[in-house]
């Protein structure tokens, strides 16, 4: 091309796009698999959709759903608060506090949640009585553990104590991700350590903490199914009870999955807004 033709080059480019035959092959393969799945869902009698619809909003199932929801909420709130405390202990200047927090995380993260929940369900065998008193000294009030303690307490405590170990690491990572200059700027303005943590460090750490915490919350929703080990009647244990006398095993389990998917979808929406809130001030 000669210099004189540059005028024509300033127009919008109309080029032949690159062909992507691989994409077409993959799309067809996925479409076929999807069609097979839909066909199965419709034609396979074993799903017994009518049976599922019968139980979907039954009082027993709704009770199980309610217990699953409150366990998830309680475990996450308790786990986050205890996790923040453990993270601050891990970052403390006091070696005893650091060591204690490390030991906690080591124990609760290093053993299966299911096993921990079994222990929480049988805690009465380990501590037959609970009392208030002086350590290694006299006790003022004592009570039978099993009288004070319920399956609900065992289930929620088991989940909280386990979750706190994971949250501690997430929170610690978040706090450590905040630039040291932030601490200095706050100190130079005369803020105390507690004010700096609450107003400057934690809000910034939340940007890093929020996404994995959302994942933890969604994991927790599903992990509540493990409290059948206590035993405590949440959604999965409830449908097990139902199919143990109706023998409609698959329909009940699929129905439980539908409930879990519905709840986790709601949580994903919440996670989206939470991340957007704590991401303010950061250009993408």
């Amino acid at each position: 091309m000669s210099v004189g033709q540059t005028e024509t080059r300033t127009g919008t480019i109309k080029a032949v796009p690159v062909r992507h035959p691989g994409r077409w092959v993959a799309a067809v393969a996925v479409a076929v698999l999807a069609a097979m799945l839909v066909n199965n869902l419709i034609t396979n009698e074993a799903y017994n959709w009518a049976e599922q619809l019968k139980y979907l909003f039954s009082p027993a199932v709704l009770g199980g759903v309610r217990n699953t929801i409150w366990l998830t909420v309680a475990a996450m709130i308790g786990g986050v608060l205890l996790g923040i405390l453990l993270a601050l202990m891990r970052l403390s200047a006091n070696p005893l506090l650091r060591g204690a927090a490390w030991l906690y995380v080591w124990v609760f993260r290093g053993t299966p949640l299911f096993t921990q929940l079994l222990i929480w369900g049988n805690i009465g065998a380990l501590f037959p009585t609970l009392g208030l008193g002086i350590p290694f000294g006299p006790e003022f009030v004592t009570a039978q553990t099993n009288a004070l303690y319920s399956a609900a307490a065992a289930a929620s405590l088991g989940l909280i104590f386990n979750e706190a170990a994971y949250m501690a690491e997430i929170v610690r990572g978040g706090i450590q991700s905040v630039d040291l200059g932030q601490q200095e700027a706050a100190s130079a303005l005369g803020l105390t350590k507690a004010q700096t943590l609450r107003r400057i460090i934690l809000p910034q750490a939340m940007r890093v903490i929020a996404p994995p915490t959302g994942n933890e919350a969604i994991s927790m929703l599903k992990n509540t199914a493990l409290v059948a080990a206590v035993p405590y009647l949440e959604l999965t244990f409830t449908v097990q009870n139902i199919y143990s006398h109706t023998y409609q095993i698959i329909p009940m389990l699929v129905m439980a999955c539908i409930w879990y998917l519905f709840l986790s979808s709601i949580m994903m929406i919440g996670q989206h807004y939470l991340e957007r809130y704590y991401g303010k001030g950061y250009a993408r």
Partner: peptide, 13 residues
């Protein structure tokens, strides 16, 4: 005592 830093250290949030 006011202090101004090389890297500003404004609170980004």
């Amino acid at each position: 005592i006011g202090m101004v830093f090389q890297r500003f250290n404004l609170f980004p949030h």
